[in-house]
Design a protein around this nucleic acid. Structure first.
Lengths: 337, 337
DNA sequence: CTGAAAGCGCTAACAG
DNA sequence: CTGTTAGCGCTTTCAG
C-alpha cells in the first residue's frame, strides 16, 4: 500500500518548506508564479489531497453539514435529502446524515455525534417523540455552542432558530375546498400524525375550510396508524357515511383506497380521496391519487441555503421561518368539477 | 455563546495536567480511582465531548464509514441505508452518505471527498455509468491507499475487494420458473438495467429457466427506460402475444401493469407480472404485485459488518463475495398454481 | 500515580 | 518571495 502524500511529503520532494507549499497550493500572493507551478504539478503527480481533519482542526471549518431525519424510507424525506445533497455539493459541502428513526434518544445521540465531528451546521426534522414531549434541551445545547441550526418540516416554535416548513394549513385547506367544490359534503380527515406540528396544522386547515364553506358541516377526524389503518377506517366507514377523505400521507391514502375497495366503495364515484406527499405510489396507483404536493427538493435546497447563510454570517438575528407553498395535483381519485 | 470544553479546559478547572485528564477519561490503569472520579464528574458537569477531528488526526481512526449510492429515491437503496445505519450505530460508527446519481464523475468526487475526510472504510454501489465503461481507476486508488472497500449490489469483479450481492440469477430463475409452473408459456423479460452486472445476471437467470424447462421456448427481451416504458412495452405487446412478464424493478412492474391495463389486458388473468424489489408500491398496488424480494436491510448490515471486519484486520486476503438469497413473495399479480 | 513533551497535518503570523 | 514557529485538541511515550 501507499501512504497518502502530505504537505510535508511534497515539501521534501521539492526541497521547500511546508508553509511555502501550503501557500503555493492556496494561491497566495506571497509566492512566485514559478514555484506555484512547481508545487502544483508536484502535488498532482503525487496525488496530493489535503487532509480535511487537519485543516478542520486548524480552521474549525469542516465543510460538512449534519442532517437528522426521522425516517429515510419516507419518500418525502428521501426527496428532501436529494435536494440538500445537490445544494450542498454545489457549494463544496458534504452531508453527514443520521436517521433518528422517530426516537428522541437517537435524535440526541445523533446531535452529539454531529457536534463531535464538528459539522459546520445542523439541519434537522424533529422526531414525533420530540414534538410530543416538547423536550428541546438537546437542541438548545447546539444553539448554545453557536452551531447554526435549521429545522425543516417538523419544527418547534420555542426554539430560536430558522426553519423552513410547508404551508400545511393551506395545503389541507385547499384540498378540503377542492373536495367541497366537487360536491363532497361528508369529508373525513384521517391522520397518522397525531402529535406533530405538521399534523396539527393540516387538521386546522381542514377544519377551517369546512366551516368557511358552511359552518353546519361537522369535521370528522380519524386518528390511526399505518399498522391499524384498515381496521380503524373500516369501522369508521361502517358507522359514518362519507363521500370524501383527506389523509395526511401517501401510504395512508393508498391503504384507505384499498379499505374503501374492500368495503365496496368506488373511488372516486362514492368517495373522493386526497393524500399528501406526491410520490411514486400516488402517481402510479390505480386510480392515480390526487395529492397535496410538498416541494420536498426545494425544501431541502432552501434548508441548506439557510444553513450556509447563517454559517457565513454568525450574527444574531430574529429567527426566520421560510414557508413553502404546496400544490394540489389533481388526478383520478377525485371527481372533476 | 459558550465555547466547547476541551481536555485543557477541564485540566485547568481541576489543576491537573492534560494528559492525566486524558488518561482518566480513558480509564487508564495509571490513574488513581479518586482522580478518575474527579475528572469524570468534572467532565460531565462541563459537558465535555471529545473532538473527533483531533482524535482522528492522532489515531487515524474516525469511526465513520463512507457510503456511495447511485440513487436514494430508489426504495432498495433507502432500505440498504437503513440497515447500514443500524449496524454502524450499533458498533459506534456513523455514516457519511454520498449520492452519485448514476454519474461516474460524481462517484469519483464522492470517493475523493470521503478519502479527504478520512473515513475508516468505504462502501459503494457502482453507478451504471461505471459499470458500462468499466472505468475503475478511482476505485483502485482507494484500495491503493489501503482504505477498506466493499461493494454491494452492483459490484465489479475486476476489483480485488469484498462484495455483497443479491443472487440475482437465482431470483430471476425462480421467478421465471414460477410463471412456467402457473402455466405461462410466453414470458417476456423487461429490463431497465441494460448494462449493469445486476441486469445481466437477472437476464441469464430468466433465459436459463426458460431453456431448462423447454428449450423450444424463446426468450423475449425488452430493453427500455422508465421514461419510455409505456411506449416501448405498448408496441411490444402489439406485436407479441405474452402471458407473463418479468420486470427488473418495482416501478417497471407498476408501469407495465398500467400499460397492460390500457391495452385491455387483465392482470393476472391474461398476463402474469412479477417485479423485483419488494417496496410499498408492490405491496399496495391493486392487484398487489408478486415480487422477488431482495433482503435490502440484511445486505446493508452485511456490508458494514464486512467493512468493519476488514478495518480491524488489515491483512491481505482473497476477495470474498457474500451472496444473499432472494425470496419470491407471491401476491395477486400472478395466477395461482 | 502524575506530568512534560512530541507529533498527527495543516494554517497563519511573523521573521528574514 | 521563502522559512520558522506556534498551535488547533488529542494520544502516547517517556520521565519524574
Amino acid at each position: 500500500m501507499a501512504t497518502k502524500t502530505t504537505l510535508k511529503g511534497i515539501a521534501e520532494h521539492l526541497n521547500l518548506s511546508i508553509s511555502t507549499v501550503s501557500k503555493a497550493l492556496a494561491d497566495s500572493q506571497e509566492i512566485s508564479d514559478s514555484t506555484k507551478l512547481l508545487v502544483k504539478t508536484a502535488a498532482r503527480q503525487l496525488k496530493y489531497r489535503p487532509n480535511a481533519m487537519a485543516r478542520g482542526l486548524k480552521s474549525s471549518r469542516t465543510n460538512t453539514l449534519g442532517v437528522v431525519i426521522p425516517n429515510i424510507m419516507h419518500n418525502f424525506f428521501a426527496k428532501v435529502i436529494v435536494g440538500m445533497e445537490e445544494e450542498a455539493t454545489k457549494n463544496g459541502y458534504s452531508l453527514v446524515t443520521c436517521i433518528s428513526n422517530e426516537s428522541l434518544e437517537k435524535e440526541k445521540q445523533s446531535l452529539h455525534m454531529l457536534s463531535d465531528v464538528s459539522v459546520d451546521a445542523i439541519i434537522i426534522s424533529l422526531t414525533s417523540e420530540t414534538q410530543e414531549t416538547n423536550e428541546i434541551e438537546h437542541l438548545k445545547d447546539i444553539l448554545h455552542y453557536d452551531i447554526p441550526l435549521v429545522m425543516f418540516d417538523r419544527a418547534n416554535s420555542d426554539l430560536a432558530c430558522d426553519s423552513v416548513v410547508i404551508n400545511d394549513y393551506k395545503g389541507a385547506y385547499d384540498a378540503t375546498a377542492y373536495l367541497l367544490k366537487t360536491g363532497c359534503r361528508n369529508i373525513a380527515f384521517l391522520s397518522t400524525l397525531n402529535n406533530t406540528s405538521v399534523g396539527n396544522k393540516r387538521l386546522s386547515g381542514y377544519q377551517a375550510a369546512l366551516s368557511d364553506y358552511d359552518n353546519t358541516l361537522v369535521p370528522k377526524v380519524v386518528y390511526t396508524k399505518l399498522t391499524s389503518l384498515e381496521n380503524d377506517l373500516g369501522t369508521f366507514i361502517d358507522n359514518n357515511n362519507i363521500d370524501g377523505l383527506i389523509t395526511t400521507d401517501e401510504s395512508s391514502a393508498i391503504y384507505s383506497m384499498n379499505t374503501l375497495r374492500i368495503k365496496g366503495k368506488q373511488v372516486p364515484e362514492d368517495v373522493s380521496v386526497i393524500g399528501f406527499t406526491d410520490g411514486n405510489l400516488a402517481r402510479n396507483y390505480f386510480p392515480s391519487v390526487t395529492t397535496v404536493k410538498q416541494q420536498a427538493e426545494i425544501m431541502g435546497k432552501k434548508a441548506v441555503q439557510i444553513a450556509l447563510k447563517n454559517l457565513n454570517n454568525k450574527e444574531q438575528h430574529e429567527p426566520v421561518q421560510e414557508v413553502i407553498e404546496t400544490e394540489l395535483v389533481i388526478r383520478n381519485s377525485t371527481k372533476t368539477i
